[in-house]
Design a binder for these strands. Structure first.
Lengths: 97, 97
DNA sequence: GCTTCATATCTAATTTTGTCAATATTATTT
DNA sequence: AAATAATATTGACAAAATTAGATATGAAGC
């Protein structure tokens, strides 16, 4: 769902590898492709998912597309993870267990 | 990937719903099932995934299985998310961009 | 021991996701 | 304006995930 969309970024080995590469700064697709053993169209597909998830942002620069981690997207993911895993104080639960 | 396993918990609408229910405390499968429009076998499948991911822990109690959020698993997910999204200082990247 | 209740497992159908090859697009270079 | 380079899109297919029905297990109650 909408909420789940952010975390999809982290649910694939190749995408984790891409994210790791982006930790050291902005990179163009061709540079990322060089270090991965996947087809160019496959990389493009993963980049679309990463950008859609909000974790990565893309910037067109001539014929290149440069990708980087999005601080905003990261904050969103962290906040959402916090929200989803907050254990609420007992008392407002009406169930009998 | 091993790393990706934790976040799989958050990548499905039904699992998010289950996690939300567990925020207010431990619940048995039958209680969760009541509030969801899915088959019993489907719920059991999702609970297995949640437990495998480490985010949820299960406790056998007579004929019931009681599920709750795992503080340890949550901490692991948060730490991992932090690690995966840490933007490293420039300088140790040898690429020309 | 038989029945019932809660949950798990197995099997099969359907949907979604990841992948690559081929083609298209868009920007640069000659 | 033709050729090249970087990336995106499309189409096809295989692998994985989600789902439900049927069946199995295991504990509780009679």
């Amino acid at each position: 769902m909408e909420n789940a969309k952010v975390f999809i970024a982290f649910c694939d080995e190749n995408r984790l590898m891409i994210l790791e590469m982006l930790q050291s700064g902005e990179k163009c697709a061709c540079k990322i492709l060089e270090e991965m053993n996947i087809a160019q169209s496959t990389l493009s597909h993963h980049m679309t998912i990463l950008v859609d998830s909000g974790i990565v942002s893309a910037r067109k620069d001539g014929k290149w597309t440069r990708y980087s981690l999005s601080e905003e997207g990261i904050k969103y993911a962290k906040d959402l993870l916090n929200q989803l895993t907050t254990i609420k104080p007992e008392g407002d639960c009406k169930c009998k267990y």
